[in-house]
Design a protein around this nucleic acid. Sequence first.
DNA 1: CGCAAATCTGCAGAGTCTGCAAAAAAGAGT
DNA 2: ACTCTTTTTTGCAGACTCTGCAGATTTGCG
Lengths: 226, 226
Amino acid sequence: MQNVAEESAPQGGLRERKKRATRAALVEAAVRLAAEHGAENITVEAISETAGVSPRTFFNYFDSRDDVFVMIGAETSARLRRAVLEAPAELSPLQALRHALAAELAEVEQHHELWRLHAEVLRRSPRLLVRSLGVHAADELGLAETLAERMGADGPAAPSAGEESRRSALGLYPHLLAAVCVTAVRVAFEHWCVRQEERTFTDVFQETFDHLAAGLPAPSGTAGRP
Amino acid sequence: MQNVAEESAPQGGLRERKKRATRAALVEAAVRLAAEHGAENITVEAISETAGVSPRTFFNYFDSRDDVFVMIGAETSARLRRAVLEAPAELSPLQALRHALAAELAEVEQHHELWRLHAEVLRRSPRLLVRSLGVHAADELGLAETLAERMGADGPAAPSAGEESRRSALGLYPHLLAAVCVTAVRVAFEHWCVRQEERTFTDVFQETFDHLAAGLPAPSGTAGRP
DNA sequence: CGCAAATCTGCAGAGTCTGCAAAAAAGAGT
DNA sequence: ACTCTTTTTTGCAGACTCTGCAGATTTGCG
């Protein structure tokens, strides 16, 4: 039951490795098929056949057909939360989160071919895009919890009781900060998708967070000024 | 296509009134049934029978069964955009949007019984909640367009060509402002849902936007907070 | 090798959703 | 009042999604 010596190894038993491989195969098959033929024209049967499993097995991994298109960033959330906790203590909450996000984005760059296909699929399917937006927004609660932990106690102490109904134990500020930053990353990503040739993503990302940190004032050269 | 003398009347022809009535009946039937028996146990057949139409007609109004649970604020978006355009010209973009939101929230208070049931349904169905988050986030594109219009040209002129692919014509700032504000309203709403007895929604709403306007600095007493 | 647990698979069946064409209703003209 | 056109509703056939169940297969372990 206990972990014997699996601290540095990235995988657990052989079983878990196979599960991860199957899941990854299903996701990759789905994304590639959808990028070519359009997400709406891909059936579960086609995906599972490409991945080499039965249609029934598909539903052992995903609750619905659409889930396979929006569950790519599953591991990102956990990494992000750890990075927030490990950020230098002298940073403000916003700065710490910005720092953690920048590190995570570098990670994503590794798999950028699949991410690019994924973005293409979402762009051509408004229904799936909406679903994806919702999933990312749902991440923010966990992130808000982590921010509250960082703000409340720097050490690993104070696991407050009452783990159920996490919303009620959270202050407004951590929830707002997490939600706004998740949103800001999404906007930066969408903006960059349209202008990939003109600017680097890091550039757009930094400008976005500069707006946030400044309190969202009207940009200099606009008609309606305060 | 042109409006002849329907400026003050809230409805168009008799046909449109009946359509709106049918749609509202379907939404209300769905929400009430779901609030009682749980959203997952309600079939399209049950909803349409309660609303007095055929199951096939249901799908003439909603693309999927779940849509009926997340399409309540459909008219809110249009009203909000109009309010943004009509806001006093001397307000900054953020102030104008804050003003418009406050007005719209008063409107929602009218139907608060249905909204309360709706919130209950979403709270007990994570799947639908995620879907709802996505739909609200999708509203932001239209709002961003309106903000850009307000910032770019105060008058009713300049309906720029190229209506398709609206993202590419938008600057980063309007998109970010719209997305962040929509998110902020959602966070304020969720926070208030948990503490309805302690504070008014307007109160939470104002605090939320104060945080935003200040650039999300860490609140004063961060270290030791019970 | 043999046992126990987890996983994969096929199958039956309920529910979702779409295209099509006919019936019913609403609006407009004569 | 009557007809004609357009819109909306409806039933039906059929494809697809998703679930529960039971048996076959694979993995982990002694």
